[in-house]
């Protein structure tokens, strides 16, 4: 069985700093993979390379069997790749709900013609999208802030909204960059549940996270990245126990 996302021999360096060293990785539908590694290992860069934010020096990425190497960022998203950002990057001038609505998969409001001509379709889409957004927000415990401006909310809640927004696109593959950083304990269970639900619906998930407990509870498997290379793949418990990896993780 081939993965939803297949990464083949991905390489990238920035002026001598190697951030991706021949990475081969496969993400499977319905599974959550933890991506572990110290700061500067190249985890965020890996997401940037896959999502088309950064161009690789070489390598190939396929999504659901189709090469996405030549696709622009937004085209990859439409093809089913969804990501969050380590530094959140919401739309600060919009409310929580509007952030999510812009993030829907098929957004007719993006086309001027459909706005000017096709009011019926817009209304129908709007109704479905609002229901979906209400559902996602409800599951994350964010219903009461739906109408708040995101820039007025605390960092932890913004982080959750970033994940909620990514869930609005019909993703086959979901990349989460440190979703728990800055999030308070009470959202722990909500975040676990939401990500697990996505996987149970057949989404291939990859999570970068320093919160080892979170990774251990959530992930089916883990990979360890160091200096742009994947050093090991296995159960999260195994990776954590490995003394060599622990030393790499915490430095000397």
């Amino acid at each position: 069985m081939t993965g939803v996302l297949e990464v083949k021999n991905l390489n990238k360096s920035f002026d001598g700093i190697v951030v991706a060293r021949g990475i081969n990785l496969s993400l499977t539908a319905g599974k959550v993979l933890g991506l572990i590694g110290p700061n500067g290992a190249g985890k965020t860069s890996f997401f940037n390379l896959i999502s088309g934010v950064v161009k690789p020096d070489s390598g190939a990425v396929t999504l659901a069997g189709v090469s996405i190497d030549r696709l622009k960022s937004h085209e990859r998203v439409r093809h089913g790749l969804s990501r969050t950002w380590q530094h959140i990057r919401l739309f600060p001038s919009l409310t929580v709900l509007d952030n999510l609505l812009v993030g829907t998969h098929d957004y007719p409001g993006e086309s001027l013609l459909s706005v000017l001509l096709a009011h019926a379709r817009l209304k129908q889409h709007d109704k479905i999208a609002r229901e979906r957004a209400a559902d996602v927000l409800g599951r994350m415990g964010l219903s009461q802030v739906a109408d708040a401006l995101v820039s007025d909310l605390p960092y932890g809640q913004q982080k959750l909204i970033g994940v909620a927004r990514a869930l609005m696109g019909d993703a086959r593959c979901l990349l989460l960059d440190e979703p728990m950083a800055g999030v308070e304990g009470q959202s722990y269970a909500a975040m676990q549940r939401v990500v697990r639900d996505a996987a149970d619906c057949g989404v291939a998930v990859c999570v970068v996270e320093h919160n080892v407990g979170f990774i251990q509870d959530l992930c089916d498997e883990g990979v360890f990245m160091f200096s742009g290379a994947i050093m090991a793949r296995g159960s999260v418990a195994e990776l954590i126990r490995d003394p060599q990896l622990t030393e790499l993780y915490f430095g000397h």
Binding site: S73, H74, R89, L90, F91, L94, Y107, A166, M168
Partner: peptide, 10 residues
């Protein structure tokens, strides 16, 4: 607000 984030939602 943010073009890259805009692209990241398709």
């Amino acid at each position: 607000d943010d073009e890259q984030a805009f692209a990241s939602v398709g």
